[in-house]
């Protein structure tokens, strides 16, 4: 550059950040509590070809606001594009891409396990180890409530599956930011 030319940005120095993060993302989305909001969010995901792994919807401390918590695979989807599309929905108030180290995330699952007399003790033992609760007992089955991270629930599933998993229900993760002192 000749003297006197102000500092310029060299084109070869311009870079673009990669779009895929390669990890699971939890998006915490505050929406106006209005009819059809969930349909708008769900419709957006299907139309743009974004796959939701889990989805949980519920009220918040403010009755006019609901929270949608959903998890997505950042190895498949450009999360930035997902959040920008979500922001275009007029009823979407706020989106947080929850940083894993700053977040407490929990999911609940109910397992109905076949529990013949001979393996009942073992299942009860698993439940204790996982700090799970037995919420229903019948002659042939037991129903166990497990709360924790998605990993913990999947681990529990691996333990009880060999005994005969009759049915399983999961809520999908919900998350909240950790407090700061």
């Amino acid at each position: 550059m000749e003297a006197g030319t102000p500092q310029v940005v060299k084109l070869e120095d311009l870079h673009m950040p990669g779009q895929l993060t390669g990890r699971k993302h939890i998006l915490s989305i505050q929406v106006e509590n209005k009819p059809g909001v969930l349909a708008r969010v769900a419709g957006l995901f299907s139309r743009r070809g974004f796959n939701i792994d889990t989805l949980a919807v519920g009220p918040t401390d403010d009755p006019s606001v609901s929270r949608i918590t959903l998890t997505l695979d950042g190895a498949v989807h450009p999360i930035d594009q997902v959040t920008k599309q979500l922001h275009k929905l007029v009823n979407v108030l706020k989106i947080r891409d929850m940083a894993p180290e700053e977040t407490v995330a929990r999911e609940m699952a109910l397992f109905k396990v076949s529990s013949a007399v001979e393996n009942r003790a073992e299942i009860i033992q698993f439940a204790e180890i996982f700090r799970a609760k037995i919420v229903d007992v019948a002659r042939r089955t037991m129903t166990i409530e497990v709360t924790g991270s998605a990993d913990k629930i999947e681990a529990f599933e691996r333990m009880v599956r060999p005994h005969g998993l009759v049915e399983m229900v999961r809520t999908g993760e919900i998350a909240i930011g950790r407090g700061h002192d």
Partner: peptide, 14 residues
């Protein structure tokens, strides 16, 4: 004007 158009099909450096 629409942030969702930026880097949707072709990545933007600026």
């Amino acid at each position: 004007i629409d942030p969702a158009e930026i880097s949707k099909n072709v990545g933007a450096h600026i």
